[in-house]
């Protein structure tokens, strides 16, 4: 009996892999524990749930959810482009480009997204006369996420060993050819997992756009809350909605990591 329990719950040298059944048991156990914990918390709170008032606002939630997906997808595409340019700029011969890219990356990564959103919205977008909030939101998130993607790409490029670059040089490849035929094909498989992870962050981080009143998912929940004063009923669907988006991306990350861990 003791042995069976051990084999169900413990991974070590004697029992390196769990059976599928044992894995399920573990997951169910943890979910039960968490449910119990929440249930206990809420019962102590004595909070009356009014789910029916929230149900009336489902359309508002849904359109916010859609907008979050749209902003995330467009931002992903644009931030990939920005990250690629910035990541590659760091190995350009023309030094000011390298410095510019470095300043961009450190500046963005070293300051809170909240501040970036406010400055971009109230100063830059205002000065440029752009007031389409959807576009402003996408541009802000892309600039933000692009800095992280830039670092992912840079470290990917740097992970290609010096000896390969030298071999390419000795064969007469130009820099461009070396990137195109030697570096990129190897880097792409290496950076897919961290890129997928960055996408999950992007989805969550876009919730901050609600402070400039972009009606994405979080903004929708805030509005519902303001109208109904049903705080938990407004925000619990929000958590569930973000999980619905990030869990598949996280599964994709895991899959890509496994797929490419042998390949290199």
């Amino acid at each position: 009996m003791k042995d069976r329990l051990k084999r169900c719950f413990i991974i070590n040298e004697d029992n390196p892999v769990l059976t599928r059944g044992a894995r399920t048991v573990n997951i169910i156990l943890v979910l039960l524990l968490l449910t119990g914990l929440f249930w206990f918390g809420f019962s102590r709170l004595n909070y009356p749930f009014y789910w029916d008032t929230i149900w009336k606002y489902r359309v508002s939630f849904f359109s916010g959810f859609k907008l979050t997906i749209l902003i995330s997808l467009f931002s992903l595409a644009l931030s990939l482009a920005i990250g690629l340019v910035s990541g590659l700029a760091q190995s350009l011969p023309f030094v000011p480009f390298r410095v510019l890219s470095r300043v961009y990356v450190e500046g963005i990564r070293g300051t809170p997204l909240l501040v970036q959103i406010l400055i971009f919205f109230y100063v830059i977008a205002n000065a440029l006369g752009v007031n389409n909030r959807f576009i402003v939101g996408i541009v802000i998130m892309s600039i933000f996420s692009g800095a992280y993607i830039s670092e992912i790409i840079r470290s990917g490029v740097e992970s290609i060993g010096e000896s390969q670059l030298e071999t390419a040089r000795s064969l007469g490849f130009t820099r461009g050819q070396t990137y195109r035929y030697i570096i990129f094909p190897q880097v792409i498989s290496r950076i897919l997992p961290p890129l997928a992870g960055q996408f999950a962050s992007l989805i969550k981080d876009s919730s901050l756009l609600s402070i400039i009143a972009i009606k994405e998912f979080t903004m929708a929940a805030r509005e519902v809350n303001a109208n109904t004063f049903s705080t938990l009923e407004s925000y619990i669907p929000l958590a569930v909605g973000y999980l619905l988006l990030t869990l598949p991306v996280s599964a994709l990350t895991k899959y890509l990591e496994r797929k490419y861990s042998y390949a290199s």
């Binding site: 000896s163 390969q164 030298e166 071999t167 000795s170 064969l171 030697i182 094909p185 190897q186 290199s264």
Partner: peptide, 13 residues
């Protein structure tokens, strides 16, 4: 010029 390295340096991909 043909160059051959000690560690072969074939492109792994």
């Amino acid at each position: 010029v043909g160059m051959v390295f000690q560690a072969y340096n074939l492109f792994p991909h």
